Amino acid sequence: MFYRRKIILSLIDLLGGEVEKLRFQKLLFLYAMRKQNPEYDFVPYKFGCYSYSANADMIAMIKKEQIAESDKLFLKIDQTEYFNTLKPLDQTLLSEIVEDYGSMSSSTLIKHTYLNFPFFATKSTIVHDVLPGALYDRVEKEIPKADTISLFTIGYEGVSLEKYLIKLVRNNVKLLVDVRRNPLSMKFGFSKTLLKRYCNSLDIEYIHIPEVGIASENRQQLNDQKDYDVLFKNYCKTTIKETTDAQKRILELLVKHRRIALTCFEAEPCQCHRSHLASAISNLPNFDYPLIHL
């Protein structure tokens, strides 16, 4: 079993074997905020902090009959006690979370997370009810407001779905342009259908432009930067020259949406074709905007 799922099952055990669905995400979030490298990351969502990855794990454990659910509750039905198999630090942190917040009502818990972690309340549909009047000011200050037309690029190698999306949200990106030839990934959340769904849930539009990508068969045996340089030299001689219309379309999308990001896999721009594509777009007539690699 994945270690991160043991964290969830142990948390529910410490709460008496069941937890309200709304409280579950908040308690797991508070646990994550006390860890340097938590098992789950979070995004601002319609009821505050939310982890798509944790939700996916809950669905998986329900299918495996480790957890059951009702309209409002998650119930642990796996009889194994996982708490003693956790690292000592995680045992301590989970125990502290349950001691500090375990008896707190849902409404109080929501208010606590909104007040202490206001960025994660910026997408909430209930924030004005939870934090009326002047209390809302601290959330208002956290809402990304940058509006300068900017072209970003971003890779998802080595980061969780939530950390990736947070970068987009904090930079007020309005449109994600997927420039992979084949928008499939073994990594959770990064295949086309799911990535589009998660972007849309955070008010970020998504579009796939495969013709500017590199075919998978051309991406084999990339062992060092020299191999990448050869690949991109060929890419610039062929695909870049053959996709001028697509590049112009991306520029039009930039002007329309003001802040867009080109995305592919690699973390380092120098090892991804998106940097060369972005450079080609920046050399088009009338391009006079910042180019930023996230």
Rank of each mutant, 00 (worst) to 15 (best):
V169C: 01
N172Y: 03
V173P: 08
V173M: 06
L175K: 06
L175R: 11
V177D: 02
D178C: 05
V179F: 03
V179Q: 02
V179E: 06
V179L: 09
N182E: 12
N182A: 12
P183F: 08
P183R: 05
P183A: 02
L184P: 00
M186F: 07
M186R: 14
M186I: 05
K187D: 00
K187F: 01
F188N: 06
G189A: 00
F190E: 01
F190M: 04
S191I: 02
S191Q: 02
K192L: 08
K192Q: 14
L195K: 15
R197Y: 11
R197T: 13
Y198P: 05
C199K: 10
L202G: 03
I204S: 10
I204G: 04
I204L: 11
I204F: 08
I207C: 11
I207L: 03
I207F: 05
I207P: 13
H208K: 10
I209T: 12
P210E: 12
P210Q: 11
P210K: 05
P210T: 12
E211R: 13
V212P: 13
G213A: 12
G213T: 12
G213W: 11
I214L: 05
I214F: 11
I214A: 04
A215V: 07
A215T: 08
S216A: 14
S216L: 13
E217L: 13
R219H: 07
R219I: 00
R219P: 01
R219C: 07
Q220G: 04
Q221G: 00
L222Q: 06
L222G: 11
L222D: 03
D224A: 05
Q225I: 15
Q225N: 05
K226R: 10
D227Q: 07
D227S: 15
D229A: 13
V230S: 12
V230A: 09
L231F: 12
C236Q: 15
K237V: 00
K237C: 09
T238V: 07
T238D: 09
I240W: 04
I240M: 06
K241C: 09
E242Q: 15
T243W: 06
T244G: 14
D245E: 15
D245L: 14
A246W: 01
A246Q: 14
Q247Y: 07
